[in-house]
């Protein structure tokens, strides 16, 4: 059975559910503490996940201190070797501060996840949003490989989730888009609230050029089961959720399961 390593930093708080949904997807998973680079490099893994949370309480800015932990040296190396690496929420912030995404010059900071921009509010926002994959995402990115191109919902929960790039890089970024925020019927988000944080180009997830590293702000591990979809959700998934039988609501996958299914397929899980 393939194995994924979930890397816990001081202040991570989504490590258990992330490890759980990986297991449920047919991938063995183990949680490693920030100071277990030795144990991790002895065992290695087939994929790496940096879970959500508040590493170092987002002090200075989200993700920056964790990106300097020496366990990230190892993750960096593995990413360069082409191993699938996923950062969810705070994990995404760590990846962008590590220079793994967009990764034009790996290790160099070329993007930012800045504070949410929203009318009349600042700080944290948790809500469900609709997403769809970028043009090259399904083909390139193991984590997104099981998507079919339709809009699907996931929850977001963050205070610093606005992707920002330098003006001169804006064209280059387009081929790195993993997911974008959209309306329930799949058209591009036109500002708040469908784009919940002011991300440029409506970007919700960003990958490196090879596609093996993905930094995503939404939380697929919180929407693994159909019963986790809110009952008042609009669109296809809302209808599916409201009209499901007792059997289906338990057994049918939620939209977040597609992300882990993609990885499982990539790693050869039947």
């Amino acid at each position: 059975m393939p194995c994924a390593a979930v890397i816990r930093f001081p202040g991570s708080n989504c490590e258990f559910e992330t490890a759980r949904v990986l297991r449920n997807s047919g991938i063995d998973s183990r949680i490693y503490n920030w100071n277990e680079i030795g144990r991790l490099s002895d065992n290695k893994a087939d994929a790496y996940v940096l879970p959500g949370g508040f590493s170092f309480q987002d002090r200075i800015r989200a993700g920056v201190i964790a990106s300097r932990e020496n366990i990230m040296d190892f993750v960096f190396e593995e990413a360069m070797n082409g191993k699938p690496v996923l950062g969810i929420c705070n994990g995404a912030q760590v990846l962008i501060e590590s220079g793994l995404v967009p990764g034009w010059k790996p290790g160099s900071v070329q993007g930012a996840l800045a504070g949410n921009l929203a009318p009349g509010r600042s700080g944290y926002l948790s809500r469900w949003v609709y997403l769809k994959p970028g043009k090259e995402a399904v083909a390139k990115c193991p984590w997104l490989s099981a998507l079919e191109g339709d809009a699907f919902p996931l929850p977001i929960a963050h205070a610093e989730g606005r992707f920002v790039f330098r003006e001169e890089d804006m064209d280059k970024v387009k081929s790195h888009i993993g997911l974008t925020y959209c309306t329930p019927d799949g058209s591009a988000a036109d500002g708040w609230p469908d784009n919940p944080n002011g991300s440029v180009l409506n970007i919700a997830a960003l990958m490196n050029a090879e596609g093996n590293v993905l930094a995503m702000m939404p939380h697929p591990e919180r929407s693994y089961h159909l019963w986790q979809v809110p009952p008042d959700m609009q669109g296809f998934w809302g209808d599916k959720r409201r009209n499901s039988s007792l059997k289906d609501i338990e057994e049918q996958p939620g939209p977040g399961a597609i992300i882990f299914k993609g990885l499982a397929k990539y790693l050869g899980v039947k």
Binding site: V64, R68, F76, G99, S108, V109, G111, A112, A114, R162
Partner: peptide, 16 residues
């Protein structure tokens, strides 16, 4: 200024 993963700390030059 955090130009790279190992150098600089207090700001992200892309957004700050």
């Amino acid at each position: 200024v955090s130009q790279t993963r190992t150098g600089g700390l207090f700001s992200n030059p892309v957004s700050q």
